[in-house]
Design a protein around this nucleic acid. Structure first.
Lengths: 255, 255
DNA sequence: GCCTAGGTCCCGTAT
DNA sequence: ATACGGGGCCTAGGC
């Protein structure tokens, strides 16, 4: 754990190089200007930001607000430091071919440490979980649905749940964990058309399984003769509702 | 600029509350466990991470590697701190309704500062820039293309560039700044079909303008009778190529 | 508020 | 390597 308050450029450069070599996670509070070129070109004029260099050489520039970095280079970049009138960080990557330059006019704080974290996050509530739920509870779609395959890469495309209706008609289901839009219907359409063509059958039943659909998507669904089954993704919004009511009031009174 | 190395929980809580009230940007190097529930449910077991609270109450948990936060709550959350066996941070938001809990067993470092940054990033090379370029240089599509409208929300959909061929036939163009896939073709198809229906015309020329197309997308494009125009987005990949060759060698020799 | 579509999307997975 | 699709996507722009 190293912490340097307002180091001069030369000190900062030495500390940064040392930390980078030891694969430490670096955080820099600084005043900087950023240029990026690669998949696009961008320029960010001077301002105070937080620059992070992660242990895989991911480089992030964060503004004081917002979820996403305003500038970044993905893992595996080649990172270098120079001093002069300013402290300059350059990051370069191939694939995608891109380059970033951070011109730092003032280092307010520089900290670094090696973090140890072997854990992976476990998430419940994905589209895959939803498909699994439907596979196990086919009545969520209809009384006669008999699922056969799950999340399978077929030559017709990647189909969430596939089965039949007990009378020889194929049924395919496209799941969406949120309101289904035009895209979802077109995805379904692509799979249905392809399967019809390849199998040489006339009728295939297509379903969108989702908590809801947009109005236009619903129209398109009807135009193409597909069906909708209202299905909530598993484990969504289990946040206590009464607590949320209180929060709503609290945020209102504090705004 | 405040910096605290290995503060006890009570100190950390006081500093955090003070910093939060003053809308400072907070960075915490710590050992923690994270639970999230809302749009899904997730759990992340104990490990060393960096927790960031931004000046708009965005909350980020970063692992030592990777571009994206492993857990987060978007801006405007209600954030609270508690102490006991651990230092516990809770964040709660409505819309989307979600809740996060960070159980911190060790605080390695706590820093905070108020950042001032009024600048917005300027980016060149977006799809909109590409559409504008085509509008100004219609010969990039074909010799007879006459553009009329640009990036317009029509009742047929949001159409990048629309025009005609000088002989009364409508031409619509869907731009993609990267290799166009199946989705792009289906988007184009949606617009063309809609415009045919609403205008009651038989022929509308549809173009994909992109640096390239995937094989399947190309097949679908032909099936539907649309066309492809190879167009590079403006200001892409201006990174020096010779420098990149050197970098390639360097990264190879260091791996 | 919903809907639509882009993004320097990122990211995993399958071919 | 490319390609395809999900994501707790995020974010901006219309309506």
């Amino acid at each position: 754990m190293r912490s340097h308050v307002e180091p001069d450029f030369e000190t900062a450069k030495n500390v940064l190089e040392h930390a980078l070599r030891r694969r430490e996670l670096i955080t820099l509070y600084c005043e900087c200007m950023v240029k990026y070129e690669g998949r696009a070109y961008s320029k960010l004029e001077r301002g105070e930001r937080v620059v992070t260099i992660k242990q895989d050489n991911t480089l992030l520039v964060h503004k004081p607000t917002g979820r996403n970095p305003i500038n970044w280079i993905k893992e595996g970049a080649s990172i270098k430091f120079k001093t002069g009138d300013a402290l300059v960080i350059t990051a370069e990557s191939i694939n995608p071919r891109e380059h970033m330059m951070i011109n730092i006019s003032k280092v307010n704080l520089l900290v670094s440490a090696e973090l140890s974290d072997a854990e992976e996050v476990s998430i419940v509530g994905s589209e895959a979980d939803m498909a699994r739920m439907i596979y196990e509870k086919p009545y969520l779609i209809s009384d006669d649905f008999k699922p056969v395959s799950l999340e399978e890469q077929t030559k017709y495309g990647f189909i969430d749940v596939m089965g039949h209706n007990g009378k020889g008609t194929l049924v395919i289901i496209e799941c969406k964990r949120v309101t289904a839009g035009l895209n979802a219907v077109q995805q379904l359409r692509r799979y249905v058309e392809k399967i019809k063509k390849v199998k040489g059958v006339k009728k295939v039943v297509g379903y969108i399984a989702a908590p809801g659909m947009s109005k236009n998507a619903e129209g398109m669904l009807k135009d193409w003769g597909y069906k909708f089954a209202r299905v909530e993704p598993p484990n969504r919004n289990i946040v206590d509702k009464s607590r949320q009511q209180k929060l709503k009031k609290y945020l209102k009174s504090n705004s």
